[in-house]
Nucleic acid binder design. Structure first.
Lengths: 247, 247
DNA sequence: GACCAATGTGTACGGTGTACACCTGATTCG
DNA sequence: CGAATCAGGTGTACACCGTACACATTGGTC
């Protein structure tokens, strides 16, 4: 038996411990100072040890995002869609604000991890449950996306599986199974994605028209602005009155 | 006389050439592959030569952003505020889309360079000219900010001078001069910034309440969503009808 | 022609992510 | 019990990064 003089046995590293350490280290020293070496040092381990639990730094960042998404409260029960959405967004915002680096990292990530997809699916469901059509929900999700995340753009663009490693050719049969599994786990997202492809009887099957989405949100805001102006809106009155700006 | 066999004399480098090369190189190879070394190589020059025209990489990125802001069309004349704003935003969007890396870089920058301030001031002016109160304009700018830029947050937070190097203590007298100059060049921005500080007779002098700004935009969107739902909005009808979603 | 500031060069340092070969210790099996 | 296995931790090494600093070369001015 080799004699290690460490008073207590070293705790085994694992993915969760790594991620947790990364998050709190980033909180302390800032995201730009977070390097694999620095993180390893924090965990009393040699840098390369981390790579046994995380493929590379990119995946580390993805993991950190998942950790934060996990901090967002689940939807409140027994509330109308609007206040439910409102509370959820504010909860998401609080989570992001707890970690100053989070916004930047979330926006830089392009791969959708399961936790993110879960959140999005649940979020989508709140509108559907609120009586929104699939069509409207789709555009609404785009419009509000930027308010809390940066995933406005590529969200529904392809129905590719979440970070399934694109290992060479996909057997096309496995592909069907994946999509089925996807539909089971993320029914709302899939509903929207599929409706996009063939809601035709319009001539062109528009995949997902970025420009349209952008203008949708823009005009929604501009119309709102105009209404407020015509009502003689003031922030003082709004503060007093509370609630929605369209008093 | 040293014999340089270069057929033609080497063109002198300058800041503009550096920035221009950086932009188009980033277009080609992506922003993450753009290094000082790679850029230098593109310009047939040793890496350190760049530092004669740009303080460091951060400033290079700032310069690239300025270049892009310069691509945004000036406001159209003789149009109502709404279509003027609309066209301007869409122009900004086009500029950003021409350079896939731009969005990310713009959002990562925190320092406001003159070109950016010019754009923002002019943008602000469009609302004021459209009959919006200074108060409402302030919140509107925050609400729309994220639609095209990432400067939602820290915009009006301090009235610090634009990238004036914070060289030690500012003589407090120079400070006044700077502010005056600022007011001359960016009247609209300054109008809003100063109105924030003392529009009181409310008890607290609220600097710039992030939370309020966020909820303002959020509720504006939610109210808009609700209206569309109640109207039975569909994207097909909207596409046919064109124009604003609140048909 | 001599000077001088601005511009370009060369070298070097400390940082990064991570490939790859290796060691180690706990668990499993004959 | 001893040997085998193998996930987890180690050490070294490489290519690349931004950039400080001392130096060489220029083009323009008197």
């Amino acid at each position: 038996m080799t004699v290690h003089l460490d008073v207590e046995r070293r705790v085994r590293l694992n993915r969760d411990r790594v991620l947790r350490a990364a998050v709190s280290l980033a909180d302390e020293i800032g995201i730009e100072a977070l390097s694999m070496r620095r993180l390893a040092q924090e965990l009393d381990v040699v840098p390369m040890a981390l790579y046994k639990h995380v493929q590379n730094k990119e995946e580390l960042l993805d993991g950190m995002v998942e950790m934060i998404v996990g901090e967002i409260d689940p939807p409140v029960r027994d509330a109308d869609w609007k206040s439910a959405v409102r509370q959820r967004v504010l909860s998401a915002r609080r989570a992001l604000q707890r970690h100053p680096w989070a916004r930047q990292v979330v926006e830089s990530r392009t791969t959708k991890t399961p936790a993110v997809l879960d959140y999005m699916d649940s979020f989508t469901g709140m509108f559907l449950a609120g009586g929104f059509s699939v069509d409207l929900t789709h555009h609404v999700m785009h419009a509000i996306g930027g308010r809390m995340w940066g995933f406005t753009q590529e969200l529904f663009d392809d129905t590719a599986s979440p970070q399934a490693e694109p290992s060479a050719e996909v057997p096309a049969e496995v592909r069907a199974a994946m999509l089925e599994q996807m539909a089971a786990r993320y029914p709302n997202i899939v509903a929207i994605a599929t409706s996009m492809d063939h809601d035709d009887d319009s001539v062109v099957s528009h995949g997902c028209d970025d420009q349209f989405e952008f203008e949708f949100a823009l005009d929604l805001l501009l119309d709102g602005f105009e209404r407020l102006r015509d009502q003689g809106w003031t922030s003082r009155a709004a503060r007093r009155g509370g609630g929605s700006p369209a008093a």
